[in-house]
Design a protein around this nucleic acid. Structure first.
Lengths: 366, 366
DNA sequence: ATGAAAGCGCTAACAT
DNA sequence: ATGTTAGCGCTTTCAT
C-alpha cells in the first residue's frame, strides 16, 4: 500500500494532475464512494477505513474540488456582497458585520465593488448569478437607475437583501437606517443651538437614503415654522470634490448660512475645508453637520459632527436576514435608529437660545 | 416552437429549476452540443441556428452555470486576493490596481481579508485552493509566522504573487516597495533639517517591510555618524492604540527626541495625538514622519509627512505578474521606489542647519 | 453543420 | 460496511 502511494507519487511528478478521491481510492484499493464517505465522516464507514482514508488524503495533499462539490450539491454556501466602495468606513464596517455572522453560520463571503457604476454592478450580479453564490447582499450604486438586474436574481432563485441604499422598485429584504429620523434630528439640533438659516447639500434624489435625508431636513424645518428658500438646497455627487464645488456656490450666494447639513461626510469634508480656506469660521459663522461618521471625522479640525448609522450592525442584520431567507424563512425588514455624534463643527455659539429638546445629552451623543 | 417555449414556461412555474442548455435544446429540437456551440459562436454553427439559440436563451433567461463550465475547463478565470484589511487606503488602492488589470485581461477578482490573523489567512487560502481561483495575490498577515499554507499553493499548481508584505520563506513572485530606501531617505531628510535624536517606532520584525524600514533607519543614522541608543527604537503593533502607548513611553523617557520616524501612519497618528495631548509641540519640538500615505495624513493638524508607496501601481504590477505566470511566463520581481511626501509634521525649524542633499525638492515631494 | 458520448470531481440513492 | 451507478451542467472529441 505504501508502495502504491509511492507509485502514485512518481506518476504525479510527471503528470502534475490534481489529486481526486479516485486517486486515494486507487492507492487504498477501495471505491470512490468509500473515500467520499470517509471524508465526510459518514457513520456507515468503519473506523479503520475512515482513518486510513484520512491519513492517505493528508499525505497526498488532497483537497476537495469545491466546484465539483457545489455543482453536485446545487449550492455553494457562499454569500455575495456588492457595495459601491470597500474603502469607505461605512461599507467596510458593514462587511465586517456580514462576515462575522456569515462565517459563524458556515458561509463564505465573496466581496465585490461596483465603484458606483451601473455597468459594473450589472456585470457583478450577472457573474454571481452563475451559480457562484447562494444569495446576495447589496447596497445599490448611485449610477443605477434601472433595477432589472437586481430583480432578475429572483428568477435564478437567488435571495437578495439590500442594505442602506435600497429601492422600492426592487423586491428584496431590506436593512435600512432611519435616515429620515437622522436628518430630522440633526436639523432639530441645529435649530436648538440658534441656527435658523440651515442649508442642505443632498445626494442624488433617486437614491433612497439621500431622498430620506432631504425629506427629514425639510420636515424638521417646516415643523419649526421655517420654509427653506430655493437656494438653501443643492443636489449633487457625494465626493470631496463635490463638496468643494458646493462651498464655492455657497460663498457666491447673497448670504452665508448659519449651518449646512450635508448628506455625506466626504462632501462635508470638502465644504468644510473650502469654506475655511476662504476665511469662513467653522463653527463660529457656519456650523457643519455630516452623515455616516467616517473615521476622519474626529481627526480634522474642527472635528466634524456626524450621524452614526451602526453600519456593522446593519451588516450583521443583513447577513442574518439573508441566511434566514436561504433557510426558507421570511424575515422582516429591519430599521436601525441612527445616533447623532456632536463634535466641534457644530459647537453652539454663546447658547443664548435653546429649545426644549428632551433627547439632547451632553456626552456628545444625541 | 413558440408552443414548446410556452410549454416550458408552464413547467417552470411549477418546478422552478434553473435553465440549462438542454432546456434550450429541447425547445428548439436540437442537441445540447449545438446549443453550447451556438452560445460560444463556434464557426461550424449556421447563422440561422446560432441566432435562434441566442434568442431563445435570452427569452428563457438562460445563464451558464459557472461551476460546470469551470469544472469542465479546469480553470476559473478568477484571481484570489488576500489582504489583511480592505479598509486601509494602502490595500484598497492596491486592489483597485489589481482589478483594473485583471478585468482588462478577462479575469474576475475574489477579495478576502485575513484581519492580520494567521488562522483566517490559512482558511482563506485553503478555500481558494479548492478550485475557486487560478492564482493568488496576497499580502501576508502579521499574525503569520509559518508560511506552509502559502507554499502549499504550489502543490495545487496555483501560482502566487506576494506584494508589500513578502517573505523569503515563500517561493513566489514578489512586488515590493523599496522600504529600505524609503526609510533611509526619511532619516536623511530629518537629519538635513537639523534633527539628530531620531527615534524609530517599528513594526514586528518578522515582517519584511517593517524589518527593511528599521534597517534603512539604522543605516542612514550610521552613515551620518550617529549610533541610535537602546531606547531610541521601539517595536510593536501597527494600530493607533499602539502609537498612543509608544507616545507614553517616549514621554516617560529622559529626554524627548527631535523626531520620530514611524513605520506606519496609524501608529504615527496615535503618537502625534498623544504627544500633543501632553503639550508637546509638533513639529516645533518633535517632528513625526509616518509611512504609507494614508488618506487621513493630510487631514490632521499638523498634517503628517509620510511615504507614498504607489500602492495602486503595486497592485497593477502584481496582477500583471500573476497573469504572466498563468500564461506560463516567468516574470521578474518588481521593486517600486517610494516617494517622500513632506507635510507640516516635519516642517523645518529655523533651518539653521542644512546638509547638502541633492534630492530635496520644494514641492513637498522628495 | 450537427449529434452522440465521454468525462471534469464529486455525492447519494440504490444495490449488495 | 462497501460498491455501483447515475447524474450535476457543461465542453469537446469523434462520428456522421
Amino acid at each position: 500500500m505504501g508502495n502504491r502511494l509511492h507509485t502514485f507519487t512518481l506518476r504525479m511528478n510527471e503528470k502534475k494532475k490534481k489529486v481526486s478521491i479516485y486517486d486515494i481510492a486507487a492507492v487504498l484499493g477501495v471505491s470512490g464512494s468509500t473515500v467520499s464517505r470517509a471524508l465526510q465522516n459518514h457513520p456507515a464507514i468503519s473506523e479503520k477505513v475512515r482513518e486510513q482514508v484520512r491519513k492517505t488524503a493528508r499525505e497526498m495533499n488532497y483537497k476537495p474540488n469545491a466546484l465539483a462539490v457545489n455543482l453536485k450539491r446545487g449550492y455553494s454556501k457562499t454569500i455575495g456582497v456588492v457595495v459601491p466602495y470597500i474603502n469607505r468606513n461605512f461599507f467596510s464596517s458593514a462587511i465586517e458585520g456580514i462576515e462575522e455572522v456569515a462565517n459563524r453560520m458556515g458561509y463564505d463571503v465573496l466581496i465585490c465593488q461596483s465603484n458606483e457604476l451601473y455597468e459594473k454592478e450589472q456585470k457583478i450580479l450577472h457573474s454571481l448569478s452563475q451559480g457562484k453564490v447562494d444569495g446576495v447582499i447589496a447596497s445599490i450604486a448611485y449610477g443605477t437607475r434601472d433595477y432589472s438586474h437586481y430583480n432578475n436574481l429572483a428568477e435564478d432563485r437567488i435571495p437578495l437583501v439590500l442594505f442602506d441604499r435600497v429601492s422600492d422598485e426592487v423586491k428584496a429584504g431590506m436593512v435600512r437606517g432611519n435616515d429620515y429620523q437622522g436628518a430630522y434630528r440633526v436639523v432639530r439640533y441645529l435649530l436648538s443651538t440658534g441656527r435658523k438659516r440651515i442649508f442642505h447639500c443632498a445626494g442624488f434624489q433617486h437614491v433612497s437614503v439621500w431622498r430620506d435625508r432631504y425629506r427629514g431636513y425639510w420636515d424638521a424645518l417646516q415643523a419649526y415654522g421655517i420654509t427653506p428658500e430655493a437656494d438653501w438646497v443643492r443636489i449633487g455627487g457625494v465626493t470631496r470634490d463635490a463638496g468643494v464645488a458646493f462651498a464655492r456656490e455657497i460663498l457666491q450666494g447673497k448670504a452665508l448660512p448659519d449651518a449646512v447639513f450635508v448628506a455625506s461626510d466626504f462632501v462635508a469634508l470638502g465644504i468644510l475645508l473650502e469654506l475655511m480656506r476662504n476665511g469662513v469660521k467653522v463653527p463660529e459663522e457656519v456650523a457643519i453637520f455630516g452623515y455616516a461618521n467616517e473615521s476622519f471625522d474626529e481627526l480634522i479640525t474642527p472635528s466634524l459632527s456626524s450621524v452614526d448609522q451602526f453600519s456593522k450592525q446593519m451588516g450583521q442584520a443583513a447577513a442574518r436576514m439573508l441566511i434566514g431567507k436561504l433557510n426558507g424563512e421570511h424575515p422582516e425588514d429591519v430599521l436601525i435608529e441612527p445616533e447623532l455624534i456632536l463634535r466641534d463643527s457644530t459647537r453652539a455659539q454663546g447658547s443664548d437660545f435653546s429649545m426644549n429638546l428632551t433627547d439632547i445629552t451632553h456626552e456628545g451623543k444625541l
